[in-house]
Amino acid sequence: MSDATSDFKQLSRSVAGSRVLVTGAASGMGRATARVFAAEGAVVAVTDLALADAERVAADIRARGDHATAWALDVADGDAISRVVGEIADKFGGLDIVINNAGVSGTSPIDGDGYDALWQRSIALLLTAHPRIIRAALPHLRKARHPRIVNIASTEALGATALHSPYSAAKAGVVGLTRSLAVELGREGITVNCICPGPITTGMTARISDEHKAIYAKRRTALGRYGDPEEVAHMTLSLCLPAASFLTGAIIPVDGGLMARNA
């Protein structure tokens, strides 16, 4: 009789030593993601628009005994992306994981005076930046043992809110990009997945009063509350585990059940 244990394939759930690039890592979900990966033993590139902001997060991570380095990165600048991704790969000796998290928000009616500017800014920062970063990182990901790409979209890509059409359109583009690249890069073992956060307590939602947050969460989500950035970060981590090798092209809402609820 064969040993039943011989059929069990042990898969690693550790990202220790992985080299990780996180955009928009100075606050909110990006900061939580950088901290979570570093706490799990990864070496993290903390990038954000202002170097001082990125360095505060990296310094906090290092103070905990973990590994992080800060870079200034404007994800709307294609030349800066090529340069910074190259610098990160050179310093870290490669790149294993890319987390496209950087984002902005804004509202405008379709016929508003500022609509065109908001549209261009939203598409540049929330969508065009993603393939640019992936293209710059791809030569390094192709050399990685467990290459992973995670794009952060939004539940606004799955169901829309009035006055958010530039944001919703950009995030829907991220969903399409994720699926297409998952198919394109799958044969190379590079997984590409997407997280769609719902109502999360971040700087972007800070302008909403606690009272209105509570009303909205109880009315719209199954769990009856806003999520924490760390709850999104841990899902991101799960997608990047070596054991997550057969998961690609997934669009995962982390939304407290918002998209599951009809009424």
Rank of each mutant, 00 (worst) to 15 (best):
D7H: 04
L11A: 09
S12N: 06
V15C: 01
L21E: 15
V22F: 03
T23L: 01
A25V: 10
S27V: 05
R31H: 13
R35C: 08
R35L: 03
R35I: 05
V36I: 04
F37H: 13
G41D: 02
A45H: 06
V46W: 06
T47Y: 02
A50W: 00
L51V: 13
A52W: 05
R56N: 03
R56K: 07
A59P: 04
D66E: 15
A68P: 11
T69F: 00
A70Q: 11
D74H: 14
D77G: 14
G78H: 13
G78A: 15
G78W: 02
G78P: 13
E87H: 08
G93Y: 05
L95T: 00
V98M: 07
N100A: 11
G106C: 06
G112R: 07
D116G: 06
A117Y: 07
L125F: 04
L125P: 02
R132A: 14
R135I: 10
R142G: 03
A144I: 10
R145Q: 08
H146T: 09
T155M: 13
L158W: 03
G159L: 06
Y167D: 11
A170I: 06
K171S: 01
V174Y: 03
G176S: 15
G176F: 01
S180N: 14
L181N: 02
L181R: 04
G186Y: 00
R187W: 01
I190F: 00
C194I: 07
P197C: 07
G198P: 09
T202P: 12
M204V: 04
M204N: 12
R207I: 13
S209A: 10
K218F: 08
L223E: 10
L223N: 09
G227N: 09
G227T: 09
P229S: 12
A233M: 12
H234Q: 11
C240S: 05
C240L: 04
L241E: 09
S245M: 14
A250L: 15
I251F: 01
I252R: 07
I252E: 02
D255S: 05
G256N: 02
G256R: 02
G256A: 02
G256M: 00
R261K: 15
A263S: 11
